[in-house]
Simulated scan of single mutants.
Amino acid sequence: MSKKIMLFVILSAMLIVIAGCGGAQPSTEGGADGGSAAAETVKLRLGHIAGEGDAWHKGALKFAELVKEKSGGTVEVEVFPSSTLGNDRDLIEGMQLGSVDFALVAGVLSNFHQPMSILELPYLFRDQAHLEKVLYGDVGTQLKQDLLDNAQIRGLEFWVRGPRELTANRPINSVEDLKGLKIRVPEIPASIAAWEAMGATPTPMAFGEVYSSLQTGVIDAQENPLAFIDSNKLLEVQDYVMLTNHVYGYVLLTMSDLTYQKLNEEQRKAVEEAAKEATEFENNLVAEQETQLVQKFKDNGTQVIEVDTAPFMEKAKTVHAEFAEKYGQELYDSIVNVQ
Rank of each mutant, 00 (worst) to 15 (best):
L181I: 02
G208M: 12
L131R: 14
A275Q: 03
E165R: 03
S213P: 00
L166E: 12
T28D: 15
L7K: 11
L119Y: 14
T216H: 04
V134Y: 00
N150F: 08
L285D: 01
S213V: 14
A106M: 00
Q142W: 02
F312P: 09
E280Y: 12
L252F: 05
D239T: 12
Q96H: 01
I219W: 04
G155N: 11
A129Q: 11
S110R: 05
A32D: 12
V218A: 13
T167D: 01
G98S: 15
Y260H: 11
A19R: 08
Y240E: 11
T318V: 06
K68C: 02
V218N: 10
N111P: 01
G73C: 08
W159D: 09
G31H: 00
H113G: 04
G217R: 14
G98W: 13
L253Q: 14
Y211V: 02
F102L: 09
E78C: 03
A50L: 11
E165H: 03
E187R: 00
A64K: 07
T291H: 03
L258T: 10
G217S: 11
A64R: 09
S212C: 01
I153P: 02
K296L: 12
G31T: 03
A278F: 12
K43Y: 11
E266G: 13
D333Q: 15
N169K: 10
V286P: 10
G328K: 01
R126E: 00
E52C: 04
V338M: 08
D149R: 05
F207G: 12
D54K: 04
F312T: 14
K3C: 05
N300R: 08
M255R: 04
K144P: 13
F281A: 10
F63C: 08
S12R: 10
L331A: 09
V336T: 03
I5N: 07
A13H: 11
K144Q: 01
W195T: 02
G34W: 02
Q261S: 15
A39L: 12
G217T: 10
L214F: 12
I305H: 00
P202Y: 02
E325F: 00
D220V: 06
L263N: 07
G72P: 09
E120A: 08
L44Y: 09
R161G: 11
N245M: 07
P171S: 03
S71Y: 13
K315L: 05
A129L: 06
D54F: 00
E165M: 07
H130E: 07
D308L: 07
L178N: 05
V9M: 14
Q261K: 15
A197V: 01
E288S: 09
T291A: 12
